[in-house]
Design a protein around this nucleic acid. Structure first.
Lengths: 246, 246
DNA sequence: AGCGATAATTTGTCCAGACAAATTTACCTT
DNA sequence: AAGGTAAATTTGTCTGGACAAATTATCGCT
């Protein structure tokens, strides 16, 4: 078996990107079908395995549904999942950041544990830069305890960005010269560890909302911030869910 | 190439179940490594493809991290983010409802307390119809304990809608002859009360995520459902945040 | 036109093989 | 003992092939 010439990026990633673009531009309409695996193998001159790797990722994104015997149906024109809460886009998060104040508490280099690495998109054992802070409302009430991880090469500029008016990620994107391509959020209910409980004035172990926001460029994760919020009635994360056609 | 005898269930599913059990019982400790792919192929007498299908699903569950050259490291002893919820619109919530199953547990008339009324948009003292159920994944794992409040005049049809395939709110909107004009969500971290803890198999008082979704027409709230989810590592609510211009 | 059976198509499962890339281990030298 | 290099190990990417399972299309009969 002859090995293919090694592209810098996996073949399936190229195909994935092409299919994503074609779905987005309407070549493959929502509600319609993608070409069959066999047709895609022919078109891209790759094995069925490679096509399936691309399709698998489209499926994982919620963009297509694959049905045995029937083919792949387009469900969405972009990866599923958007927003929640008071914001539904990065620009609205920008406003949130501008309407609150982050008080930087501590900065340090940190070696990523396996668990943190898996969460934020780094690699276990890597050195990242960690900034801990307390985000307050304009009235001064504690809103969230924040732990932000940035790749180590931003260590020099990140603290000043944190002290500035705008969101950190915007400054980091500017410094990196790459636009933000993906912004994700994960929400969990967890027992408040001691340092969170102490900072937010709740009992250790009390239920707390941990919201992780991760911003990525094409080169990887730019910043990942854990925001710990007070439990139950002291913090409610409220959102509107979009109605279709609006 | 000789085809294997067809098992009722895929081979990778058997291996997945075995590995899950071994991680849960400590045979493969958290922080330690799983056997290599090659060793698992030997042990189970299957191809590498089959082993990798099982490992891929363990990885998707957040239970292991697979690192090229290093092997698979155990992160957790149970699936993390058993169910990742990604939705940005009502129609996508529709799909969620279709992909899970709601088992109706109990229905009853209820008089709204001030607290519940304020949350769901009713009036204290009003009689509403309450449906309690357990939402499960297609594999049967408990996903959420659900308490849905609907105005009393829907009491006759709501249970059948709950037992149907689609989302309840769609059926109610149809029955009311009014389109849904607003869909809202509120997320809180709360201690799991007894009935939630019991249904979802966690300790009473453990942190749980309570997601309230409220659907309204021009005439008022159509349905408001509290969804209680397992705490931290068992349920992660993941979203994408829209980038402006897309 | 409608229905049922069959054939064709499409995805799912699984095998064997190979090379690339990344990590770990072993070995040798200082 | 420490450091560097090479070899071994492990997962990632990719090829080709095959049969199973599910869906759709086609054909024939009434």
């Amino acid at each position: 078996m002859n090995a293919p010439t090694r592209a810098k990026r996996p073949l399936y990633a190229e195909i994935l990107e092409t299919l994503r673009a074609e779905i987005a531009d309407g070549t493959h309409a929502i509600g319609g079908s993608l070409p069959s695996e066999a047709a895609l193998c022919k078109r891209f001159n790759v094995s069925r395995f490679t096509v399936r790797e691309a399709l698998r990722r489209l499926q994982a994104d919620g963009m297509v549904a694959r049905v045995q015997g029937a083919g792949s149906r387009v469900l969405r024109d972009a990866p599923a999942g958007v927003f929640v809460q008071n914001y539904r886009s990065v620009s609205e998060l920008t406003q949130y950041a501008e309407e609150t104040e982050l008080e930087l508490l501590k900065t340090e280099d940190t070696i990523l544990s396996a668990e943190i690495a898996a969460r934020i998109g780094g690699t276990e054992g890597e050195v990242w830069f960690l900034m801990r802070g307390l985000r307050r409302t304009v009235e001064g009430a504690p809103l969230a305890l924040v732990a932000s991880f940035v790749p180590h090469h931003f260590a020099d500029i990140a603290p000043d960005l944190a002290r500035g008016d705008g969101p950190i990620y915007a400054g980091l994107a500017k410094a990196s010269g790459q636009p933000i391509e993906k912004a994700e959020q994960e929400t969990q209910a967890l027992p408040a560890p001691y340092h969170v409980a102490d900072a937010l004035g709740v009992e250790q172990g009390a239920p707390a909302l941990r919201i992780l926001r991760r911003y990525s460029t094409s080169e990887g994760v730019l910043i990942a911030s854990f925001n710990w919020h007070l439990s139950g009635d002291r913090y409610i994360h409220r959102t509107r869910i979009a109605l279709d056609g609006r």
